[in-house]
Design a protein around this nucleic acid. Structure first.
Length: 422
RNA sequence: GGAGAGAUGGGUGAGUGGCUGAAACCAACGGUUUGCUAAACCGUCGUACGCUGUAAAAGUGUAUCCCGAGUUCGAAUCUCGGUCUCUCCGCCA
């Protein structure tokens, strides 16, 4: 959620910046108009409330002195009615403002690529090289079937399509990846957390996932709980409605969760195997930091995520995401894509995003500087470090041998207890 | 699932209709005292929104005692609905 005051004070700048991000700019004028009405309403209502408070105190005194206050009481009855109708009007206006505000995306950072679609993302760098062995690379679905480690039919039987089923060494490898990533990030200074996979509506709203993206979420109607689409949601909410200590910043968390996404409307796209699933595993990184450090922290987080891929020796590239392709809450976003030799393309395995104060305003996560009055909204960064599903695709495919075996990357041996599959 | 208790500022905790944004204590911060430390004493000590205003400041009004609605001239305090927490019983990984 954007800052209403910021919009009020810099409408043209906000409009200009939002113009690169869909239709956000169109809302600005409407917001400004409503904001004027809102402040008028507040002024009137508060004036009357002030009067009521004063006179009520007088009534109390008169009653104590045994005087008759019925005239003033009748007068205040009328005032109270007026206050009530003004308050009702105000709440309608504020609801309208809020409705618009939750549909305006974050302001893009200076210097990020301007563009409409993913084609206009800019590649920052690549690491490693494309594999070009002189044999036909089997894709992860074929490899999964061959070694009986991944079975999508069984997953479909249990739950439906898009719910992968891992077996034997496949299940162990998945777990190994998660443990390896968590251990690595702990060394990088992140505090490990383990969280609920179902969260309440307030948590989803704080993370700006709901109501805008409610259709993409799995919801449990009977309790109004949501299956988390990412660990970002519960981790972000750790500090909801809190004022953090300046000296504690930055606060960094890593955590594993399963992630649940309905992927409504994306049927037919990248459906094969693990490429687009309703449930996947991810280790998430979250950083709560000051505004002046957030872009530096973002670079560090990116390196933390890349470090996993380098340890696993998987070819990847980094994209600087353009304004039109960026996530709703993001101000700047890097995607990390890992190479799939069988698909012959890069797959998005991670996304590192600086959400600046966009989420913290809704979630009310603030901090206080020493020797300074008032609070500021904290900057919140999130990054996958990483999602195992796409990573598994790249890993299985990249580590296959011409005779169809799969070598387990060395860093995972201590987690798997075996060195090859097949 | 059954029965009961509760939710007040960073913490403990008082307050059952009228100077109560809220006692007291603790913590924190600033200061005095002190050879140093400790102790003592004094002061400060929530947040949000609006208005006035500034270089920064500051002033002022309103709201806020879990959330929402109601009663009343006036609600932390009374009524109703909800959420959450705790205790006991039952069930259970």
């Amino acid at each position: 959620m954007l800052d209403l005051k910021l919009i009020r004070e810099n409408p043209s700048i906000i409009k200009e910046k939002l113009s690169t991000r869909g239709d956000g700019a169109a809302y600005v004028d409407k917001i400004l108009q409503l904001d004027i009405e809102r402040r008028e309403c507040i002024g009137k209502a508060e004036g009357l409330k002030s009067l009521r408070n004063t006179v009520s105190a007088e009534i109390a005194k008169m009653k104590k002195a045994g005087e008759d206050a019925s005239g003033k009481i009748a007068e205040m009855k009328k005032v109270s009615d007026d206050i009530k109708s003004l308050d009702e009007k105000l709440s309608v206006i504020e609801k309208d403002i809020n409705e618009i505000l939750i549909n305006i995306p974050n302001i893009p950072a200076d210097g990020i690529p301007v563009g409409k679609t993913a084609d206009e993302n800019i590649e920052v760098r690549q690491w490693g090289e494309k594999l070009n062995g002189d044999f036909k690379y089997l894709d992860h679905v074929e490899l999964g079937k061959k070694h009986d480690i991944l079975n999508f039919e069984t997953g479909a039987k249990i739950s439906g399509s898009g719910f992968p089923f891992y077996k034997g060494k496949g299940a162990i490898l998945e777990r190994a990846l998660i443990n390896f990533m968590l251990d690595s990030h702990r060394v990088n200074g992140y505090t490990e957390v383990f969280m609920p996979f179902l969260v309440n509506r307030a948590s989803m709203e704080a993370a700006e996932k709901v109501p805008k993206f409610e259709d993409d979420m799995y919801r449990i109607d009977s309790d109004d709980l949501f299956a988390i689409p990412t660990a970002e949601v519960p981790i972000l909410n750790i500090h909801r409605d809190e004022i953090l200590k300046y000296d504690d910043l930055p606060i960094k968390y890593c955590g594993y969760t399963a992630c649940f996404r309905r992927e409504a409307g994306s049927y037919g796209r990248d459906l094969r195997g693990l490429l687009r699933v309703h449930q996947f595993n991810k280790v998430e990184l979250i950083n709560f930091c000051t505004p002046e450090t957030s872009y530096d922290e973002m670079e560090k987080m990116l390196l933390n995520a890349c470090g996993i891929l380098e340890a696993l020796n998987i070819h990847y590239r980094i994209l600087d995401i353009c304004t039109g392709d960026m996530g709703f809450a993001g101000s700047k976003q890097y995607d990390i894509e890992t190479w799939s030799p069988a698909e012959n393309k890069f797959l998005e395995a991670s996304s590192v995003t600086n959400c600046t104060d966009f989420q913290s305003r809704r979630a009310m996560v603030r901090f206080k500087r020493p020797d300074q009055k008032g609070t500021e909204y904290i900057h919140i960064l999130n990054g996958s470090g990483l999602a195992t599903s796409r990573l598994m695709v790249s890993l299985l495919e990249s580590y296959q041998t011409p005779d169809g075996k799969i070598i387990v990357p060395k860093v995972l041996h201590k987690y798997t207890g075996f060195e090859t599959i097949g």
